[in-house]
Nucleic acid binder design. Sequence first.
DNA 1: ACTTGATCTAGACCTCGCTCCAGTTCCTAC
DNA 2: GTAGGAACTGGAGCGAGGTCTAGATCAAGT
Lengths: 140, 140
Amino acid sequence: MATVETRGEPLSIGEVAERTGLSVHALRFYEREGLLVGPVRRTAGGRRRYTAVDVDWLLICVRLRESGMPLADLRRFAELVRRGPGNEAERLRLLDAHQRRVEAQIQALEECRSVIAWKVSVYTEHLGRGEAGGLWDPTA
Amino acid sequence: MATVETRGEPLSIGEVAERTGLSVHALRFYEREGLLVGPVRRTAGGRRRYTAVDVDWLLICVRLRESGMPLADLRRFAELVRRGPGNEAERLRLLDAHQRRVEAQIQALEECRSVIAWKVSVYTEHLGRGEAGGLWDPTA
DNA sequence: ACTTGATCTAGACCTCGCTCCAGTTCCTAC
DNA sequence: GTAGGAACTGGAGCGAGGTCTAGATCAAGT
């Protein structure tokens, strides 16, 4: 996948924040919450050093979150991955279920869009007619 | 619009809850928050009696909320409508801005969907090959 | 009359997903 | 060696959007 150019050098939390769009706070929070697959490496001084793999995982997390997967599910998924091979079927079920939810979401949004578009057109037309009052108001 | 068959008879809060999908609690909450266009009528005994117009407005609210409009914006919109004619341009701006957000949202979701679909296909293929381990794991 | 169930109000409480703070330590540059 | 910025931990706080409780009232059925 290699979605992000990291040239093998580990990244600081700030750099990862930039690359993923998550805040530094959120990154630490995700870690505390067990949303990462492995423990993040540390420098001698205790600072986090993220690898490209960490970042790729985070980018997936971001997509899953963006599409409304709750942190709890994300955590379950991370656990499965952490446990290693053997549970791929379960991971697939999880993803698949989420995919369906996303599709439902898109459809719902499209319905909303058309309702809104209709309303927008009602107003546009009304204004186009030069404020000719009388627009059926309470719900318009 | 007449999205809902009400035959002119006012409805109780429970009936409106059924028709709009909002909970009875949420309906009272919305009212307190000034999200309705007019004050809801009451029976002698103090119970709310919703008209078809109220319900239509609520159905629009539901769509706007479903598509992520914050309650604050919904309140602003309700206020504009409450104030009566003359501010249609502002109402339009509000709706139009929201419409754009919805479109952006749909696009974002579609990107998420395709990322997820890709991941689903990785797993499906992997499982299809009969558990032939070696799936690049940490992010898979 | 009595039971049952829906509604009423005011306000406390809840979940989610961060965000921010305090106080400290690390590191880089001058 | 010192200043200044980034990162560290643990825990408190927050905003959104409801949800729920308590205790009372209303209304319909038997």
